[in-house]
Simulated assay, not measured.
Amino acid sequence: MMDYTVYRKDRPPSTNNLSYGGVLVAITTNLLSEEIRDLQTDSESIWVQINMTNVRKLIVGSYYRPPSDNGTSIEQLKTSLDRINQNAKSTIILGGDFNLGHINWDIPCTIPSKPDIKLHEQLLNIINEHSLEQIVKKPTRGDRTLDLILTNIPSIVNKVETMPPIGNADHDIVYAECALSLKRNKKITRKTN
């Protein structure tokens, strides 16, 4: 059984004091990882750095955009991505529920005469500005692709597929395999007499 270091950002309680939701990244304790607090904004996102065996750093993010967002959450996501030093040779993998399902990811471009086109264009602009590629090509809820994985190095991705939801969830699960060489925690061996 593996142990994990869990990094999470819980959603604040609602007006009737109910708490539910948030984002989470779980990293096996075999890997060196730490939360990147400098990338935090008011958006529902969490960012973690994992050390790789070369000079690169792997930055993993989890993001949720509420359907009621008027663009503030996407702008805060842009702020986080802007804070990543492009000269730091970072590999970025960002996944989450973006709740923007009117994009044709084969092209990529917005689907005309659909709602919230400006928000969809805003997301596409952020993806282009940060040299990211969206790698989920199948719908994740009905006929729309709401759950995305963005990366600046798509060549590391070996496999992406969707699987049926668990329990009462209404989104498919996105599964991705990436070829990365990550630094492992060294186990300290101690002798006792």
Rank of each mutant, 00 (worst) to 15 (best):
M1F: 13
D3C: 10
T5I: 12
V6L: 13
V6W: 08
Y7L: 05
Y7A: 02
R8M: 13
R8S: 15
K9Q: 14
K9D: 04
D10G: 08
D10S: 11
P13Y: 05
T15A: 11
N16I: 09
N17F: 11
G21Y: 12
G22K: 12
V23A: 05
L24Y: 07
L24I: 15
V25A: 04
V25T: 14
I27G: 01
T29S: 15
L32T: 13
S33C: 14
E34F: 13
I36E: 09
I36K: 12
D38E: 15
D38I: 08
T41E: 11
D42S: 13
S45Q: 15
W47P: 03
V48W: 08
Q49Y: 01
N51M: 12
M52L: 13
M52D: 00
R56T: 06
K57V: 00
I59T: 01
I59A: 02
I59V: 15
I59W: 10
G61A: 02
G61Q: 02
G61D: 04
S62T: 03
S62E: 03
S62K: 04
S62I: 00
R65Q: 09
P66T: 02
P67L: 02
S68I: 06
S68R: 02
S68P: 00
S68G: 00
T72Y: 06
L77Y: 01
T79F: 01
R83Y: 00
R83D: 01
R83F: 02
N85E: 07
T91P: 00
I92N: 02
I92Q: 06
I93E: 01
F98S: 04
N99R: 07
L100F: 08
L100D: 01
H102P: 00
I103H: 06
N104H: 14
W105A: 04
I107R: 09
P108T: 01
I111M: 08
P112E: 02
P112Y: 05
K114D: 00
I117M: 12
I117C: 05
I117A: 04
Q122E: 09
N125A: 14
I126F: 09
I127S: 07
I127D: 08
E129I: 00
E129K: 15
E129R: 14
H130K: 15
S131M: 14
Q134R: 09
K137M: 13
K138S: 11
P139A: 10
P139V: 01
T140E: 09
T140A: 09
R141A: 09
R141L: 05
R141V: 06
G142E: 10
R144C: 11
R144P: 00
T145V: 10
L146H: 09
L146Q: 10
I149Y: 13
I149K: 10
L150D: 04
T151E: 10
T151I: 10
N152W: 15
N152S: 14
I153R: 15
P154E: 11
S155M: 10
I156R: 11
V157N: 02
N158T: 11
N158R: 14
E161W: 07
E161Q: 13
T162G: 04
T162Y: 06
P164G: 00
P165W: 05
P165L: 05
I166K: 07
I166R: 03
G167M: 07
N168R: 07
H171E: 00
H171C: 02
I173L: 14
I173A: 03
V174N: 01
A176I: 12
A176Y: 01
A176N: 01
A179W: 08
L180F: 06
L180Q: 06
S181W: 08
N185C: 12
K186V: 14
T189I: 15
T189Q: 07
N193G: 06
N193L: 08
